[in-house]
């Protein structure tokens, strides 16, 4: 449809709506509508035509809002709300569903089978968790680190439960892009990530490589001397 035809169509329907006599607008006014509609399409074409009419018939009176202005704004507002209400379910469905969340029930884990120096992997909420039974040397090197020099400064004491220095429980996915670091590897004998080379110490803290933060500690508590509950 040409711009002129569009502008005319607007005027015709506009004419019907208002029942007023058809008054061809001067060509100059059409050009205003044209310039607008060429960029913003039909909706603005209608707006332009409306403005033309307002300009011609109410030119002397104040340009007060018309019934069409009201319809235009009311329809636009309802449309915007409707659109948002439609988009929301489509976004929300992407989130973890109820079954996945329910699978996040706490898991109990018996520590008595974990020998000193051993790292055990288990899953909670589909996420990998390392349980590491640290040796005296590993504890000492974790504690004797200058906290201020770390990328993500955290004292070892803040990452284990009081009096349970030998048990380190951390998430098992590298904080860079999620690979599983290999235990007892790297310059600090904690973990080293095979993907892009992040190195973690025996407290699971980031020491070298691209990972930005320490391996996080999941929520857990000791239920007895030799058992923990994660979650």
């Amino acid at each position: 449809m040409t711009v002129d035809a569009r502008a005319q169509l607007c005027l015709v329907s506009f004419n019907e709506a208002w029942g007023s006599a058809w008054q061809p607008a001067p060509p100059a006014r059409f050009r205003i509508a044209e310039a607008k509609s060429s960029f913003w399409g039909l909706a603005e074409g209608a707006l332009g035509a409306r403005m033309t009419r307002v300009a011609t018939t109410h030119a002397s009176a104040s340009a007060e809002p018309t019934r069409r202005d009201f319809l235009f704004i009311a329809t636009g507002a309802a449309g915007a709300v409707g659109l948002a209400a439609t988009i929301w379910p489509f976004v929300s469905q992407m989130a973890p569903d109820a079954a996945t969340i329910a699978a996040g029930a706490p898991v109990d884990f018996d520590l008595s089978h974990v020998a000193e120096g051993q790292i055990v992997k288990l899953f909670w909420r589909g996420k990998l968790i390392f349980v590491r039974h640290r040796t005296a040397d590993e504890i000492k090197s974790a504690q004797n680190t200058d906290v201020a020099s770390l990328r993500d400064p955290e004292a070892d004491a803040a990452r284990v439960k009081p009096g349970k220095d030998q048990w380190l429980v951390v998430y098992g996915n590298c904080t860079h892009l999620g690979c599983v670091p290999l235990g007892n590897e790297g310059a600090f004998h904690g973990w080293q990530c095979p993907c892009h080379g992040s190195v973690f110490d025996t407290s699971g803290r980031i020491r070298q490589g691209p990972a930005p933060i320490n391996l996080p500690v999941p929520p857990y508590a000791f239920t007895s001397d030799k058992a923990i509950r994660i979650g």
Partner: peptide, 17 residues
């Protein structure tokens, strides 16, 4: 990321979508 996965890691919902 958890919205991309539909879970807490790459898992069945991820494969489906």
């Amino acid at each position: 990321v958890s919205y991309l996965w539909g879970g807490y890691s790459v898992s069945n919902p991820t494969l489906n979508r």
